[in-house]
Each structure stands twice: as C-alpha cells, then as structure tokens.
Amino acid sequence: MSNAGASKAKRNAVMALAALCIYGAVQLLALSGTLLSYHLQVLSLACINIMLVVSLNLITGFTGQFSLGHAGFMAIGAYLSAALTVFYQLPFLAALVLSGVAAALVGIIIGLPALRLKGDYLAIATLGFGEIIRVVILNIPAVGGPRGFTGIPRYTSFGLTYLIMIITIVVIRNFIDSSHGRACVSIREDETAAASLGINTTYYKVTAFAIGAGFAGVAGGLFSHYLQYISPAPGQIGFLRSIDILIMVVLGGLGNITGSVFSAIVLTLLPEFLRGFAEYRMVIYSVLLILMMLFRPEGIMGKNELSLEALESLVGRMKNRKGMRSDGTS
C-alpha cells in the first residue's frame, strides 16, 4: 500500500517536471525567436480550449451528464471579467476568480432544476439555458449588445494561461480521484446503484456541474482578454461553441483527461495549419465525429489515460522483446 503511495508520488513528480519542461521549452523557443508572438497566441488559445474541454469532460465524461450549454458559462466569465477590468479597473486575477465563482453559481442555479432531466432531454435543456444566457447578454447595452464588447485590454499571456490550465487539470484530476469524484463517476455508471449506496446523486451532479462551469468561466475570462473583443455570436459564445467543445471532448474520449488535452491541442492547431481549407474545417470535424461514433464511440484513446505506468509497461515490453532477440542471437 505504501508502495502504491510512493508510485503515486513519483508519478506526480514526473508530471510536474514534464509540465515545467514544456513551459521552459516554449519560453526558450520564444526567446530564441523560433516562436513568434503569433505562435504564443495560438498556444494560449490551445490552453484555453484545454480548460474548456477538461471542464466539460468532468460534467459529461465523468459524471455522465450530457451538456450542450458549456459555452454559456464561458460567456459569463468572458463578459463579467471584461466588465470588471474595463469598468472597474479590477486586477485581472481578481476578475478571473470572480468570473469563475459567478459562472459556478449560475451553474448551480441552472443545474438544480436541469439535472433532474436525463440524457437527450438534459442535452436540449442545457442548450436552451446556454442560449438564454447568450440572448440576455445580447440585450445588455452596457457590454455592447449585439455589436459585441470591444476595447478589452490584452492581459492574457501564454505564461499565465499555461499556469491556470495546469491548475485546472490538477484540480479536476484530484477531484475525480477522491471519494467525491468517485461518487460522480458512479452516477455515470449507474445512478440507481449509486443512490442505493448512499450517494446523494443530485448533490454530486450539481457539484460536478458547478466545478465544470466555474473553470469554463475562468477560461472565458482568459478568452476575452486574449481576443480583446467578445461578441454574442453563436460561434463565439453560443451553441456552436458548445458543440465545438463537445466535439473535442468526444474525440479525446469521454472520461479521459489526457485525451481531452490532446484533442484540444490538435483541434486548435489543425485549423492554423489548414488555413487554405478553412471552409472544410467543419466538414472534416463533422465527418470525424460521425465516423468516431460509428466505429470508436469511446474516443481515440478510450478510457486509457496516458500515464507513466502505461509508458513504462510499453518501454518494458520493448526492452523484453529486444532482450529476447539478443538472447536468441548470442
């Protein structure tokens, strides 16, 4: 048992080291001029998308509550944080925290009634709530109404976004690996059995929903201070964005955090490489989505998290094979 604890500690240390190395490498490449500020911006966007995807994965992948309104929470964070920094000159970090809290609260208010619904009915209801958030924002003249909110300062840097993304992943991963997180997963697996084991299913569904919404709110705050502009268009904060996030979750695998990270990175960078094919982007996405559901509904990586053990066992197997071969020849 202490063995398991030690390997966990080792794994965490390696993960932390890897996170630091990636950050260091990016900064070095930026200093040496290999990565331009445009590249750093794309990387920031990837980090923001990772936050959105991982937070939706907590709700949909781990807790099994299908949400089509995730962009609504992002919208709350995007607009609230912008209003706080522009109108009240609040420090960016404070604005981000408040945005996260506000989005989580709205998540609770929406989640309490909506999470009584199941499956496709829940999906439709969350889509409705997301759109209502959008229409309400559209009708607030102070934040630009239908024209959008302009003149937002650019506070989002790669370093900050990267840090907050790491925090998001660690918090959500640790939550899932706790008794509370297991309660959420048990709801996905079998809600009736979960209730019979003393799990207050409503409480945990709403909790997961609120945590996911909160991080989406923070991601929204980073997004509006990255773009310096936010508009209430469906593709920006509406259901098209919600579906975008959902596609990334599904492609990475429901209930798979590393899968979410990869699919968010790939699907953020891909359009940058395929500039000439911009109009084919959605065609490719939609075909991928359908093929995925038909042939591999569990996502590219399924439920297999990319972990140290997996890598170790892979390396071990390769070594073994080599060893056997050298045995045979000598």
């Binding site: 048990s186 084991l197 799990i199």
Partner: peptide
C-alpha cells in the same frame, strides 16, 4: 447493478462513500 466500467476495488470504494 454494478459499476461495470470500473474496477472491482473501485466498486467497493464507492460504497464506502458515506463514511468519508
């Protein structure tokens, strides 16, 4: 009604929930 996708051990851990 088991949690079919989870390990045997996790199935039991979840039942311990109310004691946490």
């Amino acid at each position: 009604r088991l949690f079919r996708d989870l390990t045997v051990l996790d199935n039991l851990k979840i039942a311990y929930h109310k004691n946490f």
